[in-house]
Amino acid sequence: MFAENAMFALGLTLLAGLSTGIGSTLAFFAKKTNTRFLSLALGFSAGVMIYVSFMEIMVKARVALQADLGDVAGVWVSVISFFGGIGLIALIDKWVPSYENPHEMHRVEELSPAGASAAFESGEMPDIGNGLDSEAGRKKLLRMGTMAALAIGIHNFPEGLATFTAALSDPHLGVAIAVAIAIHNIPEGIAVSVPIYYATGDRKKAFIYSFLSGLAEPVGAAVGYLLLMPIMSKTVFGVVFAGVAGIMVFISLDELLPAAEEYGEHHMSIYGLVSGMALMAVSLLLFL
């Protein structure tokens, strides 16, 4: 079953990761950030990921572990693996500097000179010291954008493993998680594009950096495939799956919901959260 789903899982992960390019494209062609849509979409993503983590992924992980380790030990290992996944993504998050952290949301309005100045003055983008027109200022902005791309790549690595592992077990579940990850990657594409565009004045280069930052997800999936396939068993599957659930819950609570709130539409983010849970619940019921 795992080998048959591997190429499908890799393809899903690639599509989810490269959606950072969608964010970059929107940044260059939209005149204004649609905050209501982003709040709704990010909340929806969180709802999908939280629901499947607790109602589907953790259940499958526990069943697999109990089959190999026994009822009591299986439950213990599934819980420990869940919090292990949270610890892993929390450590990655801790290593990322404040501005380069992809959780810091940016708006397409920052791509206008007036918007950039306002972003600097408000602290949404750090002071570059010598202004947008200076060589030193442009170099500093380029470094910010490059670091943002690197940070997003680091964050996307475990997300790729999460999407890949879910799709290996259940292609339908993998599609749902891939869509949720793709939505959450769109604002990250904006976060990379804004500083790189101002550093270089080159929309193409900003798009390429943003696009490439998403490649970490299929890389994460490929590494997961190479490491896991030779040793795959019910215990390994259960541990990885429970860890994936922890990663997705942390991403939802630490990234998606705060980002939805940051765009200023509290109720839209909650409506999206509930809608994501409801749609995921109905979808899973239809595939029983």
Rank of each mutant, 00 (worst) to 15 (best):
T33Y: 02
N34F: 02
T35R: 08
T35A: 05
T35H: 04
R36S: 13
F37V: 11
L38G: 05
L38N: 13
L38P: 05
S39C: 01
S39H: 00
S39P: 00
L40Q: 08
L42K: 01
L42I: 15
L42C: 06
L42P: 03
G43V: 14
G43S: 11
G43D: 13
S45R: 04
S45Q: 10
S45I: 08
A46F: 00
A46L: 03
A46Y: 01
V48A: 11
M49W: 04
Y51Q: 08
Y51F: 09
Y51I: 07
F54C: 12
F54V: 12
M55S: 15
M55V: 06
M55R: 09
E56P: 00
E56K: 06
E56D: 11
I57C: 13
I57Q: 14
V59C: 09
V59S: 04
K60G: 12
A61T: 07
R62V: 14
V63T: 13
V63R: 10
A64L: 07
A64S: 12
Q66L: 07
Q66W: 11
Q66M: 15
A67N: 08
A67V: 15
L69D: 09
L69I: 11
G70P: 08
D71A: 14
D71N: 09
D71F: 02
D71I: 08
V72A: 03
A73R: 07
G74Y: 01
G74E: 12
V75L: 14
V75Y: 08
V75Q: 15
V75R: 10
V77L: 14
V77Q: 02
V77D: 04
S78I: 03
S78V: 05
S78K: 02
I80H: 01
S81H: 01
S81Q: 03
F82K: 15
G84E: 06
G85H: 01
I86R: 04
I86H: 02
G87S: 06
G87K: 01
L88C: 15
I89V: 06
I89Q: 02
A90C: 15
A90Y: 04
I92S: 03
D93F: 04
K94V: 12
W95S: 13
P97Y: 12
P97Q: 13
S98K: 09
S98Q: 03
S98D: 14
Y99C: 02
Y99H: 12
Y99S: 03
Y99E: 11
E100C: 07
E100P: 04
